[in-house]
Amino acid sequence: MADKDPLVDTWRQIITGDQKSWVLFEHGTCVVLADPADDLAAQAVAILREHGPVRAGSPAADFGTVPLESVPGWVVTSHHPDILTYVSPDDTDQDDITQDDDNTPLAVGLIGRANRDRDAHDLTVIHVEDKRP
């Protein structure tokens, strides 16, 4: 099932498993809901509002990068295990960042962290994937 927003289709390829509900935000941040509540969007907004903003010198500024095999790009992790941000090669300066470059984790991580921070402040939900039985 294709969606109008290619970012939704990208996340469908990234998140495997039929039982994982998730909520996608405007700048590519996804909150995976391990224990879904009645209102998935409200639950994800609450998680991102509390754990998404970047606070320098705190665990909220930490990130990791994971190169993807199923789609081009990377997932940027955060201190919260259920908050992930997708960074497409199109989001990067193609001249400076490639999948194999040694500087990629830092450069991509900074982009993903900034997008997570934007999503944590804007809190604009663009898609809810409800996989509850």
Rank of each mutant, 00 (worst) to 15 (best):
M1S: 13
A2L: 05
A2G: 01
P6L: 06
L7A: 07
L7E: 08
V8P: 09
D9Q: 07
R12M: 03
R12P: 02
R12W: 05
T16P: 00
T16S: 07
T16Q: 11
G17Q: 06
G17K: 06
D18G: 14
D18N: 12
V23I: 13
F25H: 09
H27G: 02
T29Q: 07
V31T: 04
L33N: 06
A34M: 12
D35Q: 15
D35A: 09
D35K: 15
A37N: 10
D38W: 01
A41M: 05
A42D: 13
V45G: 04
V45H: 00
A46V: 02
A46E: 15
I47Y: 13
I47V: 15
R49Y: 03
G52H: 10
G52C: 08
G52E: 03
P53A: 03
G57T: 10
G57F: 04
S58R: 12
P59Q: 09
A60D: 12
A61E: 15
A61F: 08
D62T: 14
F63T: 12
T65N: 01
L68S: 12
E69F: 01
E69T: 08
S70M: 05
V71E: 03
P72Y: 06
G73I: 02
G73S: 09
W74A: 00
S78T: 15
H79A: 14
V87R: 05
S88T: 03
S88G: 07
T92G: 00
D93P: 00
D93N: 14
Q94M: 09
Q94C: 00
D95R: 14
I97P: 00
D101C: 02
D102E: 14
P105V: 05
L106C: 02
L106N: 09
G109K: 05
L110T: 04
G112T: 05
G112F: 03
R113T: 12
A114D: 13
N115T: 03
R118H: 11
D119L: 02
A120K: 13
H121D: 12
D122K: 08
D122T: 09
L123I: 06
I126F: 10
V128F: 10
V128T: 15
K131H: 14
P133M: 07
P133C: 02
